[in-house]
């Protein structure tokens, strides 16, 4: 469970998150919708521990523990996962090597034994197959030369291997065609679990047909301005954000 209480964050003196409060319970899938520039990606970065943001107020509790003092790697080991809106390319590091290093770093940090190579391979191969990720992609440098859709699938594959307790998906639907969207959504849905919570950031209602949320939040100017059930997404699709963001969006 993640509890964000009255969070304020800025970058280079520019206030982007302005007193945001939000709770996602265990087993819950919460969606955040909002116009471009409302601070959705910034929120995901602040929660996952990217450097360069000044948190000027509030707290973020993961299962009761304030994670704001931890660095990104420590938060990841505690179970925070961010599927990036724009996954980075890592030249010279094969996908397999990267995944293994990350998984074992997290295990080590939690005091668990490292996975042996055969065990690891078994898990990756099974995960890749489910997401339609071809084996040869795992031997290529991570995300280098991957299409937009391949990168997003790779994000979901990483999520399935790392088994987070709280996952943020930042516009995972952007750049996906309908088939890819279905595969990625199935991948996410397969991970839904009573002990795992999700924050699904999206611009379009379309994704929420596939990943059906328990709650929908509307974000504007760094705040949650409206919370509702999944029907709220349909209403937003029909009427736009203008009822919630003050001026026309």
């Amino acid at each position: 469970m993640i509890e964000i209480r009255n969070l304020h964050a800025e970058i280079d003196g520019k206030k982007i998150i302005n007193g945001l409060s939000l709770t996602v319970n265990d087993g819950e899938v919460a969606a955040i919708m909002g116009p471009n520039g409302s601070g959705k990606s910034t929120l995901s970065y602040v929660i996952s521990g990217r450097e360069g943001y000044d948190v000027t107020g509030g707290e973020v509790l993961l299962n009761g523990e304030n994670i704001l003092e931890m660095n990104a790697a420590e938060r990841a080991a505690k179970g925070v996962f961010l599927a990036f809106q724009y996954p980075l390319e890592i030249p010279g590091v094969t996908t397999m090597t990267f995944l293994k290093a990350c998984l074992n770093a997290q295990r080590k940090s939690r005091g668990e034994a490292e996975l042996s190579t055969p065990d690891f391979m078994k898990r990756v191969k099974a995960g890749a197959e489910k997401l339609g990720v071809p084996q040869d992609m795992l031997r290529r440098a991570l995300n280098v030369g991957f299409s937009g859709g391949e990168k997003k699938r790779m994000e979901v594959l990483q999520m399935s291997l790392l088994e987070p307790t709280f996952a943020i998906l930042d516009e995972t639907d952007s750049g996906l065609d309908i088939d890819a969207l279905r595969i990625v959504s199935e991948g996410v849905n397969a991970l839904r679990d009573p002990k795992r919570s999700f924050l699904v950031i999206t611009h379009y209602q379309r994704l929420l047909d596939y990943i059906v949320p328990d709650t929908v939040h509307v974000m504007s100017k760094g705040q949650i301005v409206k919370t509702g059930s999944k029907e709220l997404a349909l209403e937003l699709e029909a009427n736009g954000y203008r009822d919630y963001v003050g001026e026309a969006a």
Binding site: S48, G49, R50, E51, N71, A72, A73, R75, A76, A77, V80, F81, L82, F84, P87, L88, I90, F98, A101, C102, L103, A105, Q106, S109, Q158, L162
Partner: peptide, 12 residues
């Protein structure tokens, strides 16, 4: 890139 790898659990 450093943040991406850290967000996956690699210490800096």
């Amino acid at each position: 890139q450093v943040f991406y790898a850290m967000a996956r659990g690699l210490p800096k």
